[in-house]
Simulated assay, not measured.
Amino acid sequence: MSPQRKLELERLFIAALALVISAIFFWMIRDYLAALFLAAVLTIFLQKPQTWLTDKFGGRPGLAAGLLVTGSVLALVIPIGFLLGVIAEQAIEVTGLVAPWVQEQVTAIREEGLDGLPEWLPFREAIIEYQATVAAQLGNLAGTVGNILVSSLRAGTGGILIGTLNFFILIYALFFFLLKGRDMSRSAITLVPMMEKDRRMLAERAISTIRATVKGSFLIAIVQGSLTGLGLFVAGVPGAIFWGAIATLLSIIPMVGPPLIWIPAAIWLFLSGQTVPAIGLAAWGGIFISWSDNILRPILVGKDAKMSDLMVLISTLGGLTLFGAVGIILGPVIAALFSSVWFIFREAFAGLLEVDEEEEFEQQLKDAKDPPDEPTPGM
C-alpha cells in the first residue's frame, strides 16, 4: 500500500472515530446541553462588558467574570422568581374559577338543553342534535382541569433535581465561557475543513442570528405579553397576570401566540354578557397587540438575522418541536447556517452550476434562423 493511501485511510479512521466518540459524548450529556447552550448565548452578550471590566480591574478576567455572573443571577433570578410566584398564585385562582364555570354550563345544558343558543351561532342545529355528547365532553373537561394542574405540578417536582443541576451548570459554564470562550471558539472553528472566509461567514451568521433572535423575539414577547395582560386587566378578565405570562411564552412563536389568549377571552366576555369589554378587548388585540408583532419582528429579527419572516416562522416552530425551549434560538440559527452553507456550495461549484445565459440565448437564436440541413433522401 502506498504511503498516500495509508495516510488517507488513517485520516478517514480518525474522522470516523472522532464522530463516533463525539456522538456518544453528546448523548451522555444530553440533559445538560440546554444549560450549556444558554450559557454560550449569554456569553455572546456579556463578552464586551467582560473585556471592559477586565481592563478596569487591571487585567483580572476572573474577577470581571465573577462580577458579571453574580449580577446576571441577581438581575434574572430574583425578578423571575417573584413573577413566577405571582403567576402560580393566579394559576390556582384561574383553575378554581374555570372548573366551577364549566360545571355550571354543563349543568345548565343538562337541565335546559341547547335550545337557548343564539340563532346566529354556526352549526347551531348540529350542536342541539348532539347536545348529550357535548354535555358529556364538557363534563369530562371539567373533571380533568384539576388533574392537569396536579400532573403538571408533579412533573415539575420530579424535574427539580435535573433543574437544579442545570442551573449550577449554567452558572459555572457562563463563568468558564467568559474566561475561555474566545479561545475555545477560535480553536473549534479551525476544525471545520473550509476556507478561512467561509468559516468566518458561518461563525458570523450564527452569532448575528443568535443576537437577533434573543433581542428580537424576547423583546417582542415581553411587549406583547404586557399588552395582553394590560388589555385583560382593563377588560376585567380574572388572572390577567397569569394569562399575560402565557401570552408572553406564546409570543415567541411568530404570528400565532397572543391571539390564542385574547380571542377566547373576548368570546368569554361576550358570552358572559359583557359586550363593551369584549369589543374593547378584541379591538385592543387586533390593533395594538397584533400590529406590534408585525412592526417589531421584521425590524428586530428578520433584518439582523437576514432571513425572511417565513423562514423565521418555520425555523422557530421546527426548533421548538425538535429541541424544546432552546429551539426558539437554535432553530433560527440552524436555518441561518442552512442558507449560508448553500451559499458556500454555490460559490464552490460556480463553474459547474452557472450557465452563460446570454451565450445560450444567442445560440438558440442562431439555431432558429439556420436550422441544420436535413439529409437528402436516398443519400
Rank of each mutant, 00 (worst) to 15 (best):
T157Q: 11
G143T: 05
A155P: 03
G81H: 12
V69M: 04
S292G: 06
L281G: 07
W342T: 10
I295W: 13
I295H: 02
Y172C: 07
G66R: 08
Y32K: 02
Y172V: 15
L230Y: 11
V86Y: 11
L161M: 09
E8V: 10
W342I: 11
F57H: 01
P264M: 04
V69G: 08
V355S: 07
F176Y: 15
L260T: 14
S340T: 15
I171A: 11
T376D: 14
W243C: 12
F345C: 07
L310G: 09
M1N: 14
Q137D: 10
P332Q: 01
M184N: 13
T321W: 03
F45K: 07
A336E: 06
V214T: 10
A64D: 14
Q131K: 12
A39Y: 07
F123Q: 08
E89C: 04
M311Q: 11
W262D: 04
E8F: 13
L76Y: 15
V276T: 15
L97C: 08
I127K: 13
W101I: 08
E89H: 15
E129A: 10
L219G: 14
L191P: 00
L68Q: 03
V69F: 05
A188I: 11
A91K: 02
I328A: 01
P118Y: 03
D198F: 06
P118E: 08
D115A: 14
A39W: 03
G257N: 02
I246L: 11
I263Q: 00
I44D: 13
V86T: 07
I207W: 07
Q105G: 08
Q90F: 11
A39M: 09
E8G: 07
E119W: 13
I267T: 10
F177P: 02
G244V: 03
P49N: 13
E374C: 00
A16E: 01
I128W: 01
L191R: 05
A136V: 06
F242C: 07
G139N: 06
F270H: 11
G280W: 01
G319A: 11
A136H: 10
I109N: 01
E204L: 04
L165P: 00
I241M: 03
R297E: 04
I246A: 03
L250D: 00
G159Y: 05
T209N: 02
A64S: 15
D55C: 13
A283N: 02
T54H: 10
L250W: 00
A368I: 04
A245G: 01
F288L: 15
A64G: 11
F233P: 00
L161H: 05
L232M: 12
P193F: 04
R110L: 12
S151T: 06
L46V: 03
I246E: 00
E374A: 09
R124I: 12
T107L: 15
A65L: 06
L36N: 08
L337Q: 04
F323Y: 14
K56V: 15
F270I: 09
I189Q: 02
S187A: 15
A247R: 08
E196S: 09
A65D: 03
I287N: 05
G302L: 02
W120R: 05
F233T: 05
F13A: 14
V341M: 12
I287H: 08
L19Q: 09
I252Y: 00
L300V: 11
E204T: 02
E347W: 01
I29M: 12
G62V: 11
A240E: 11
A335M: 14
M255S: 09
A325R: 08
G286R: 01
G116N: 09
K215C: 05
T51K: 13
A35L: 03
N166P: 12
L84I: 15
P79S: 03
F13D: 04
I252H: 00
